[in-house]
Amino acid sequence: MSNHVETKQLAGVLGYFDHDHALIKAMTQVKESKKFKHYDAFTPYPVHGLDAAQGLDRSPLPFVTFAAGMTGCTLGFLLQYWTSVVDWPLIVGGKPFNSWPAFVPVMFECTILFAGLATVGAMFLINGLPNHKKKIFDPKLTQDRFAILIEAPSHKEDESFNESKAAEFLKSIGAKDVKSVYAEGWF
Protein backbone atom coordinates (compact mmCIF):
# COMPACT_ATOMS: atom_id res chain seq x y z
CA MET A 1 0.00 0.00 0.00
CA SER A 2 1.30 3.40 -0.91
CA ASN A 3 1.37 6.46 1.35
CA HIS A 4 -1.19 8.12 -0.83
CA VAL A 5 -3.69 5.48 0.06
CA GLU A 6 -2.94 5.26 3.76
CA THR A 7 -3.89 8.88 4.36
CA LYS A 8 -7.42 8.17 3.22
CA GLN A 9 -10.15 6.37 5.03
CA LEU A 10 -11.11 2.98 3.70
CA ALA A 11 -14.60 3.09 2.21
CA GLY A 12 -14.81 -0.62 1.53
CA VAL A 13 -14.10 -3.29 -1.02
CA LEU A 14 -15.54 -3.04 -4.50
CA GLY A 15 -16.19 -6.10 -6.68
CA TYR A 16 -17.05 -5.74 -10.36
CA PHE A 17 -19.51 -7.81 -12.35
CA ASP A 18 -20.10 -7.97 -16.08
CA HIS A 19 -23.86 -8.09 -16.26
CA ASP A 20 -26.81 -7.03 -14.22
CA HIS A 21 -27.94 -10.64 -13.95
CA ALA A 22 -24.60 -11.67 -12.46
CA LEU A 23 -24.87 -8.71 -10.11
CA ILE A 24 -28.30 -9.77 -8.85
CA LYS A 25 -27.08 -13.31 -8.25
CA ALA A 26 -24.00 -12.10 -6.39
CA MET A 27 -26.02 -9.63 -4.35
CA THR A 28 -28.33 -12.40 -3.22
CA GLN A 29 -25.29 -14.31 -2.01
CA VAL A 30 -23.93 -11.28 -0.16
CA LYS A 31 -27.23 -10.87 1.62
CA GLU A 32 -27.69 -14.55 2.39
CA SER A 33 -24.16 -15.05 3.70
CA LYS A 34 -25.02 -12.61 6.51
CA LYS A 35 -21.31 -11.83 6.84
CA PHE A 36 -21.58 -8.13 6.19
CA LYS A 37 -23.71 -5.42 7.70
CA HIS A 38 -23.30 -2.68 5.15
CA TYR A 39 -23.22 -3.19 1.43
CA ASP A 40 -24.54 -1.51 -1.67
CA ALA A 41 -24.44 -1.86 -5.45
CA PHE A 42 -23.46 0.68 -8.09
CA THR A 43 -25.06 0.46 -11.50
CA PRO A 44 -25.32 2.70 -14.56
CA TYR A 45 -29.10 2.22 -14.67
CA PRO A 46 -31.72 0.95 -12.23
CA VAL A 47 -31.55 -2.84 -12.27
CA HIS A 48 -34.91 -4.49 -11.69
CA GLY A 49 -34.83 -7.20 -9.09
CA LEU A 50 -31.77 -5.81 -7.36
CA ASP A 51 -33.75 -4.20 -4.55
CA ALA A 52 -35.15 -7.57 -3.53
CA ALA A 53 -31.74 -9.23 -3.84
CA GLN A 54 -30.22 -6.53 -1.68
CA GLY A 55 -33.07 -6.75 0.84
CA LEU A 56 -34.06 -3.10 0.52
CA ASP A 57 -37.42 -2.08 1.93
CA ARG A 58 -39.90 -0.35 -0.28
CA SER A 59 -39.29 3.37 -0.29
CA PRO A 60 -41.45 5.34 2.16
CA LEU A 61 -41.71 8.22 -0.34
CA PRO A 62 -45.38 7.60 -1.32
CA PHE A 63 -46.41 8.58 2.21
CA VAL A 64 -44.59 11.89 1.78
CA THR A 65 -46.42 12.41 -1.49
CA PHE A 66 -49.77 11.71 0.10
CA ALA A 67 -49.21 13.98 3.08
CA ALA A 68 -47.88 16.82 0.92
CA GLY A 69 -50.72 16.43 -1.55
CA MET A 70 -53.29 16.70 1.22
CA THR A 71 -51.49 19.73 2.63
CA GLY A 72 -51.41 21.39 -0.79
CA CYS A 73 -55.10 20.74 -1.34
CA THR A 74 -56.01 22.18 2.07
CA LEU A 75 -53.78 25.22 1.69
CA GLY A 76 -55.14 25.83 -1.80
CA PHE A 77 -58.66 25.89 -0.40
CA LEU A 78 -57.74 28.01 2.62
CA LEU A 79 -56.00 30.60 0.45
CA GLN A 80 -59.08 30.99 -1.72
CA TYR A 81 -61.53 30.85 1.19
CA TRP A 82 -59.63 33.43 3.21
CA THR A 83 -59.16 35.88 0.34
CA SER A 84 -62.73 35.50 -0.96
CA VAL A 85 -64.72 35.16 2.26
CA VAL A 86 -62.68 36.62 5.13
CA ASP A 87 -60.23 39.25 3.97
CA TRP A 88 -62.21 41.00 1.23
CA PRO A 89 -65.61 39.47 0.51
CA LEU A 90 -66.68 40.59 -2.93
CA ILE A 91 -69.64 39.40 -4.95
CA VAL A 92 -68.40 38.19 -8.32
CA GLY A 93 -70.87 37.05 -10.94
CA GLY A 94 -73.62 36.74 -8.34
CA LYS A 95 -71.92 33.78 -6.74
CA PRO A 96 -71.72 33.18 -2.99
CA PHE A 97 -68.49 34.24 -1.26
CA ASN A 98 -67.55 30.64 -0.64
CA SER A 99 -68.18 29.45 -4.20
CA TRP A 100 -66.18 26.31 -3.62
CA PRO A 101 -66.77 24.56 -6.97
CA ALA A 102 -64.88 27.41 -8.62
CA PHE A 103 -62.00 26.80 -6.21
CA VAL A 104 -61.48 23.18 -7.26
CA PRO A 105 -59.05 23.76 -10.15
CA VAL A 106 -56.66 25.77 -7.99
CA MET A 107 -56.97 23.22 -5.17
CA PHE A 108 -56.10 20.47 -7.62
CA GLU A 109 -53.07 22.31 -8.97
CA CYS A 110 -51.84 23.04 -5.44
CA THR A 111 -52.21 19.35 -4.59
CA ILE A 112 -50.01 18.34 -7.50
CA LEU A 113 -47.49 21.11 -6.93
CA PHE A 114 -46.98 20.35 -3.25
CA ALA A 115 -46.96 16.57 -3.76
CA GLY A 116 -44.44 16.70 -6.60
CA LEU A 117 -42.03 19.13 -4.99
CA ALA A 118 -42.19 17.39 -1.61
CA THR A 119 -41.56 13.97 -3.16
CA VAL A 120 -38.48 15.18 -4.99
CA GLY A 121 -37.29 17.11 -1.95
CA ALA A 122 -37.69 14.04 0.25
CA MET A 123 -35.92 11.88 -2.33
CA PHE A 124 -32.95 14.27 -2.28
CA LEU A 125 -32.95 14.23 1.49
CA ILE A 126 -33.08 10.44 1.83
CA ASN A 127 -30.46 9.96 -0.89
CA GLY A 128 -28.17 12.60 0.56
CA LEU A 129 -28.27 14.75 -2.56
CA PRO A 130 -26.61 17.05 -3.35
CA ASN A 131 -23.67 14.93 -2.31
CA HIS A 132 -20.26 16.56 -2.24
CA LYS A 133 -18.58 14.26 0.25
CA LYS A 134 -18.66 10.94 -1.55
CA LYS A 135 -16.97 10.82 -4.91
CA ILE A 136 -17.81 8.06 -7.34
CA PHE A 137 -15.34 5.16 -7.05
CA ASP A 138 -14.94 4.59 -10.74
CA PRO A 139 -16.14 6.72 -13.67
CA LYS A 140 -17.13 3.55 -15.52
CA LEU A 141 -19.87 2.92 -12.96
CA THR A 142 -22.08 5.46 -14.68
CA GLN A 143 -21.28 3.95 -18.07
CA ASP A 144 -21.30 0.19 -18.32
CA ARG A 145 -19.91 -1.45 -15.19
CA PHE A 146 -21.74 -3.00 -12.27
CA ALA A 147 -20.24 -3.32 -8.81
CA ILE A 148 -20.96 -4.41 -5.27
CA LEU A 149 -19.42 -2.42 -2.45
CA ILE A 150 -18.90 -4.08 0.89
CA GLU A 151 -18.61 -1.08 3.13
CA ALA A 152 -16.04 -0.65 5.85
CA PRO A 153 -17.61 0.44 9.14
CA SER A 154 -16.99 4.05 10.05
CA HIS A 155 -15.87 3.05 13.56
CA LYS A 156 -12.66 1.09 13.90
CA GLU A 157 -14.03 -0.87 16.88
CA ASP A 158 -16.31 -2.89 14.65
CA GLU A 159 -14.35 -6.10 14.35
CA SER A 160 -16.74 -7.86 12.01
CA PHE A 161 -15.18 -6.29 8.92
CA ASN A 162 -11.95 -7.54 7.46
CA GLU A 163 -10.65 -6.06 4.24
CA SER A 164 -9.01 -9.17 2.81
CA LYS A 165 -11.88 -11.43 3.84
CA ALA A 166 -14.34 -9.17 2.10
CA ALA A 167 -12.19 -9.20 -1.04
CA GLU A 168 -11.95 -12.97 -0.95
CA PHE A 169 -15.66 -13.33 -0.49
CA LEU A 170 -16.37 -11.08 -3.47
CA LYS A 171 -14.04 -13.16 -5.62
CA SER A 172 -15.69 -16.35 -4.45
CA ILE A 173 -19.10 -15.13 -5.65
CA GLY A 174 -17.76 -14.35 -9.10
CA ALA A 175 -16.47 -10.78 -9.03
CA LYS A 176 -14.28 -10.18 -12.09
CA ASP A 177 -12.14 -7.58 -10.43
CA VAL A 178 -11.83 -6.59 -6.78
CA LYS A 179 -10.28 -3.49 -5.31
CA SER A 180 -10.24 -1.50 -2.09
CA VAL A 181 -11.73 1.96 -2.39
CA TYR A 182 -11.22 4.99 -0.22
CA ALA A 183 -13.51 7.77 0.87
CA GLU A 184 -12.95 10.92 -1.11
CA GLY A 185 -14.89 14.13 -1.65
CA TRP A 186 -15.78 15.61 -5.01
CA PHE A 187 -13.81 18.80 -4.66
Partner: peptide, 26 residues
Protein backbone atom coordinates in the same frame (compact mmCIF):
# COMPACT_ATOMS: atom_id res chain seq x y z
CA UNK B 1 -25.66 16.66 -7.54
CA UNK B 2 -22.89 14.14 -6.96
CA UNK B 3 -24.97 11.20 -8.17
CA UNK B 4 -23.11 7.88 -7.81
CA UNK B 5 -25.56 5.31 -9.08
CA UNK B 6 -25.82 3.59 -5.72
CA UNK B 7 -28.66 1.10 -5.69
CA UNK B 8 -29.95 2.48 -2.40
CA UNK B 9 -30.34 5.77 -4.27
CA UNK B 10 -31.82 4.13 -7.36
CA UNK B 11 -34.46 2.50 -5.21
CA UNK B 12 -35.85 5.85 -3.97
CA UNK B 13 -35.16 7.46 -7.31
CA UNK B 14 -37.33 4.99 -9.19
CA UNK B 15 -40.25 5.45 -6.81
CA UNK B 16 -39.91 9.21 -7.17
CA UNK B 17 -39.89 8.91 -10.92
CA UNK B 18 -43.00 6.78 -10.87
CA UNK B 19 -44.81 9.14 -8.51
CA UNK B 20 -43.91 12.12 -10.69
CA UNK B 21 -45.26 10.24 -13.69
CA UNK B 22 -48.43 9.51 -11.73
CA UNK B 23 -48.80 13.16 -10.73
CA UNK B 24 -48.00 14.51 -14.18
CA UNK B 25 -50.66 12.41 -15.85
CA UNK B 26 -53.70 14.08 -14.28
Amino acid sequence: MGWRGSNKNWSHYEITYMILAGLSTP
